[in-house]
Design a protein around this nucleic acid. Structure first.
Length: 865
RNA sequence: GCGGAAGUGGCGGAAUUGGUAGACGCGCUAGACUAAGGAUCUAGUGGGCUUUAUACGCCCGUGGGGGUUCGACUCCCCCCUUCCGCACCA
């Protein structure tokens, strides 16, 4: 026997797999292909965290399991390496992002290997590699050719401190996600991608996918399709001193058109300028100016009462020719619909509030509520609506749309929340756009494909130019070029692509990483796509997945890929939470406990945290290391500043990679958010150690390994275990699969002798979960390596059932006892057995049995009365 | 506010075509082996009542309240709480 020392066996088997190319994908294999993909990481300086390990272990188990089940598995890994942190580090230290990236990749790769993940490293890709981004640029050219890329002056989130424009998702509460710097709106020249043109297909094709409901729902909401009508309101030119205009609105409630008592334009709406009456101009100008200065946040949250100003102009309601006032208010968003609304205060809560605040009339057109008290948004019968009176809402919608279309005053329309994709960043560390701006006429000219990749030039300064242009703008010799068509002077585009670009198609490149003719060979794409299982964090539930789907559809339209959707099945691993130990300090800096007498947390203005390894334990109570203060232990998201981050390297160092992997899978369901419990690791480590001692015949155990056959009972247990572990693994229920193996081992421990044939399948089942330990034990059981090349153990249905079973017996639905009955016992036999049980009989003897419910294998219930 | 997910022992979690609630693990308790045990092995461990004690038995128990059913963690209605996403989207 020998001690279980993971630190000794793990490097050994990692070297073995590498040397024997155990997990190299054979592209010519006849086996069924199976593509398992992880969301590839951004190689940050912080290294791998336990959240990565969770998802990567899950896919690793699937990879090894599917391989054992006869599939040819593709399981690649790469680096999403463009991005802001490396550039910010360059700003601080002058280190080229390429160097930072290379170093971080090295760290990550070492960590991944130390965990024994079965990647085919021959297919490693890096989005910052010119051989890779050449094809990212190529796809951009295709988008341009398809008229899906354009340049626009759009108000963007300009962050002066970072000297760059941020995407909406990078702005949180009006501040930059990284660094918390203030963000303001500023119009700038930007590249946009017309994702909106694909909105319908992105919505429709969600049906084809095997994704969790919440994810599909989030995508649906993001796309935000709504059906309604566009209606044209003529402006009353008498009220504008002769200015003629037309205001088009989008509404989902055309049925309420008779209830429109005023109109609202967004402050940015171009008609505001034209329509405003001279005597109202000062007030309107002032209002619009204020609105422009407000951030999105201020325009929404701080808005207790809806603000707005009257323009002095009136519009004419096309259904009844009534004159209604036109207002300007920032509760109407310029970016949605037409930037103008017809306000129906009787049946829209927002309009109702505005009408109340500004004393505008409220008219009821749908009966069912009291519109003077509150807006009625429910279904009902049309009233005060001339030819619509008496109809229900749905009928009225259709009728009014027909009516509007006949008269040319409007039409049925569909609107989306989804906006075009802001696709440029004013940064250095991103893919350059493969286009030039010709100086003589300002034309945008794409580079010919042969000139790709357009590589990033070396740069002296990583500092943004400050004007909003990227550092690339400062390199004259790079910027100055000539037009590939005319040879005349031209300037290169100095924006770069956002980080999403590289991750939009990397799953394709893994299939054919070295192709220098095309991003991917069509035949290989047909073989491997779509991705069978894609695992990653929920933070990418909307944008990454939506953008990648969009690109995939474009590539589908131009024949590069044959599949409509890239990811057949997506699973989000749940977040792993850490424990934070905290206390509070008062204004004078005096520390005090945040735990009250009942053990509840109390609120504190300022709190401090204590790192877990500095906590002083008084029994079960966490205490401040120096002071007599009880710490408040709370479970929350891991973050550096809270000192609650668990470093996988530390766990590997102490317990080994297999224990870390096993623990993360044993914590609970993959998709669930789970708290990290340091003691939990010891539990699974103990389990591995128990198997180890069993297989290595630890003399203290007194369990002997024999070459004999399985007795019936053990055979049954083995087959039941294989059955359970197989099903659970297949359905990603790793926690219960591990529990089944634990139970089996517990049973084996109760025996004096265990035949080798009872252990080998166990080791095989363990292999995807704890591969190093399994490899070593496989050899110690007398087999040739490697267990990773073994087919998955089979179970025999015949051995899943027992000859007899314990039948639960109820009287009036209450459990009164259990009896052992034969597997095929009929009701008569079951009742006889049950009545022979005194505990059951006692409840039956005085009563009349009205009914007997017997479900073989499950329950016997007596109804008495 | 809208949408999604979820509330089960001291803790992480099992169990849902309705059929013995609490598998497995942590922690805890006792015992064994020990010079020692934060090692290991064995047994026990939802709460309460009954009992000299044990066994047996009984009652309660899956966020709360109703309901359907022979039988409900599971299905239906109402309510509460937590987490996640979106947030004036007309």
């Amino acid at each position: 026997m020998s001690q279980f020392r993971p630190q000794e066996i793990e490097p050994k088997w990692q070297a073995y797999w590498e040397e024997h190319q155990t997990f190299r994908t054979n592209g010519d294999s006849e086996r069924s292909p199976y593509y398992v993909l992880d969301m590839f990481p951004y190689p940050s300086g912080a290294g791998l965290h336990v959240g990565h390990v969770e998802g990567y272990t899950a896919t690793d188990i699937v990879t090894r399991f599917k391989k054992a089940r006869g599939f040819e598995v593709l399981h690649p890994m790469g680096w999403d390496a463009f991005g802001l942190p490396a550039e910010q580090y360059a700003l601080k230290t002058g280190t080229h992002p390429r160097e930072t990236t290379a170093k971080n990749v090295e760290t990550f790769k070492g960590q991944l290997k130390s965990l024994g993940f079965a990647y085919d490293w021959e297919r490693e890709i890096n989005t910052t590699d010119p051989d890779y981004y050449r094809w990212t640029q190529w796809i951009f050219l295709k988008l341009w050719e398809q008229d899906l890329a354009y340049i626009a002056e759009v108000p963007v989130n300009w962050c002066p401190a970072l000297g760059t424009v941020l995407a909406n998702e990078e702005v949180i509460d009006g501040k930059s996600e990284r660094g918390g710097h203030p963000v303001v709106r500023k119009p700038m020249r930007q590249w946009m991608l017309k994702i909106t043109e694909y909105a319908d297909r992105l919505l429709e094709d969600l049906q084809l996918l095997d994704w969790p409901e919440h994810l599909v729902e989030m995508q649906r909401n993001w796309i935000g399709r709504s059906r309604g009508a566009e209606v044209d309101f003529a402006v009353d030119s008498e009220s504008t001193g002769g200015v003629q205009a037309n205001i088009r609105v989008f509404t989902t409630r055309p049925d309420t058109l008779f209830g429109a008592t005023y109109m609202v334009l967004a402050p940015e709406h171009p008609l505001v300028e034209e329509l405003t009456a001279s005597e109202r101009r000062d007030a309107v100008d002032e209002y619009c100016e204020q609105a422009a200065q407000k951030s999105d946040l201020e325009r929404t949250e701080l808005q207790k009462e809806k603000s707005g100003v009257f323009t002095g102009a009136y519009a004419i309601n096309p259904v009844n020719q009534e004159k209604i006032p036109i207002w300007v208010a920032d509760y109407v968003l310029y970016g949605y619909g037409t930037g103008a609304i017809m306000a129906v205060p009787g049946h829209d809560e927002r309009d109702w509030e505005f009408a109340k605040a500004h004393d505008l009339p409220i008219v009821e057109v749908i009966s069912g509520g009291d519109v003077q008290q509150e807006a009625f948004e429910g279904d009902g019968t049309l009233v005060n609506s001339a030819f619509l009176d008496g109809l229900q809402v749905e009928e009225a919608k259709q009728k009014i749309i027909d009516w509007l279309e006949d008269r040319g005053d409007g039409k049925g329309a569909i609107n989306y929340k989804l906006r075009d994709w802001l696709f440029s960043r004013q940064r250095y560390w991103g893919e350059p756009f493969p286009v030039v701006h010709r100086e003589e006429d300002g034309a945008v000219v794409p580079l010919p494909e042969q000139q790709l990749p357009l590589t990033l030039p070396e740069v002296e300064e990583y500092q943004p130019s400050g004007t909003g242009e990227s550092p690339l703008a400062t390199i004259e010799e790079w910027v100055q070029t000539e037009c590939p068509e005319t040879g005349k002077p031209a300037r290169r585009e100095t924006n770069t692509m956002p980080q999403w670009a590289g991750s939009c198609w990397y799953y394709l490149r893994f299939v054919d990483p070295d192709n220098d003719e095309a991003p991917i060979d069509r035949k290989l794409e047909e073989k491997w796509l779509p991705v069978d299982l894609y695992v990653g964090g929920a933070e990418h539930a909307v944008l990454h997945l939506l953008y990648a789907r969009f690109w995939h559809k474009v590539l589908y339209d131009i024949g590069v890929v044959s599949t409509k959707e890239p990811f057949q099945r997506v699973v989000n691993q749940g977040m792993i939470l850490g424990t934070t130990y905290r206390y509070a300090v008062d204004e004078a800096g005096q520390p005090f406990s945040m735990v009250d007498h009942d053990g509840d947390s109390i609120e504190a203005q300022q709190e401090r945290v204590v790192r877990p390894d500095r906590v002083r334990w008084e029994g079960e109570t966490p205490m401040h290391p120096e002071q007599d203060i009880e710490l408040d232990a709370i479970v929350e998201k891991m973050s550096k500043s809270r000192g609650n981050v668990v470093n996988p390297d530390d766990v590997v160092g102490e317990y080994g990679a297999d224990s870390l992997r096993l623990y993360e899978m044993f914590m609970g369901p993959l998709e669930q958010t789970k708290p990290w419990d340091p003691r939990g690791v010891t539990g699974v480590h103990r389990f591995l150690s128990r198997i180890w001692r069993l297989v290595t015949e630890d003399e203290d155990l007194g369990v002997e390994i024999t070459d004999g056959d399985l007795d019936d009972e053990l055979k049954r247990r083995l087959h039941q275990t294989i059955h359970k572990v197989t099903d659970d693994t297949d359905e990603l229920r790793f926690n219960t699969a591990i529990a089944a193996m634990m139970e089996y081992v517990n049973d084996l421990y109760k025996r004096d002798e265990v035949p080798r044939v009872a252990l080998s399948p166990l080791v095989q089942m363990l292999a995807p979960y704890a591969p190093h330990t399994a490899e070593e034990l496989w050899v110690r059981l007398g087999h040739k390596p490697s267990v990773s090349e073994q087919p998955w153990p089979e179970y025999d249905e015949a051995w899943l059932e027992e000859d007899s079973y314990e039948l639960a017996v109820q009287v009036m639905g209450k459990l009164r006892g259990t009896v052992e009955v034969a597997k095929d016992a009929d009701e008569e036999a079951a009742v006889a057995a049950a009545r022979a049980n005194p505990d059951v009989e006692r409840h039956l003897e005085e009563a009349e049995i009205r009914r007997v419910i017997f479900v073989p294998g499950r329950i016997l219930n007596f109804v008495i009365g």
